[in-house]
Design a protein around this nucleic acid. Structure first.
Length: 218
DNA sequence: GGCCCGATACTCT
DNA sequence: GAGTATCGGGCCC
């Protein structure tokens, strides 16, 4: 039975929500089956001044949901092929959200593997949901879930065992290297430090487009 | 094991 | 018309 986090959980400062949503459980109901994953990595995107937040350009058809009531899903397409799941935060009128970047698979791993396109069920668990686009594939999420209520019935987030400070790490947000300073370096990515289910690698620097190799020099 | 590159379509200037 | 909150394969160590 769904026992989702209440709307009041999301109606707080985004950094608080991001920190506390670690350890909570993302649940997806689909075709009578429940897919469950423990949230181990998130990022906070906070308002129009945050130049890495989609709301930096103000209210548009796409970002409209960010300005609405907290506790709704904001799902969007990026790079023309990948979906991202966010939870809208803060009281209505303040555009902010927490990007769910990775979960630890708990239930429905076979179904997740199929969603990811793995034909054999022997896929390694850490390949299923260790990234924002991967977890959307595994959970079968796309634009149809945009604006859906995170209190169910098709998608919700349940309370879980809190992750202690000693196991939480912080870093700049991934993929925001080109955002204006200081927003490119804000330490607003929270993740479980010792989890094998977070985004692998780390420096996703890429930025030179067209220039070969590197020219180093500043 | 790490780095580089292309794919692909939608959003806003 | 440009830029994008990524992923996975290919290549080179």
């Amino acid at each position: 039975m769904p026992r989702p986090l209440p709307r009041s959980f999301y109606a707080r400062e985004t950094l608080t929500v991001a920190r506390e949503i670690l350890g909570c459980v993302l649940v997806r109901e689909s075709g009578g089956e429940l897919l469950r994953g423990r949230i181990v990595e998130v990022e906070a995107y906070v308002g129009e001044e945050d130049k890495a937040c989609h709301a930096r350009a103000g209210r548009t058809p796409r970002t409209d949901v960010l300005y609405g009531p907290p506790g709704l899903a904001y799902v969007y397409l990026t790079y023309g092929m990948h979906y991202m799941l966010n939870a809208v935060t803060e009281p209505a009128g303040r555009p902010a959200a927490v990007l769910i970047r990775a979960v630890e698979p708990l239930d429905g791993l076979d179904r997740m593997a199929r969603g990811r396109g793995f034909s054999n069920g022997a896929a390694k668990a850490h390949l299923l949901t260790s990234g924002p686009a991967k977890l959307c594939q595994a959970f079968g999420l796309d634009l149809r879930q945009n604006r859906s209520d995170l209190r169910g019935p098709e998608l919700w987030i349940e309370p879980g065992a809190a992750v202690p400070d000693s196991r939480v790490a912080v870093s700049p947000r991934i993929g925001c290297e080109t955002a204006a300073k200081p927003w490119d370096r804000m330490p607003w990515r929270f993740y479980e430090a010792d989890s094998p289910f977070v985004t692998p690698g780390r420096a996703l620097h890429r930025k030179t487009q067209g220039s070969q190799r590197s020219r180093h020099k500043e």
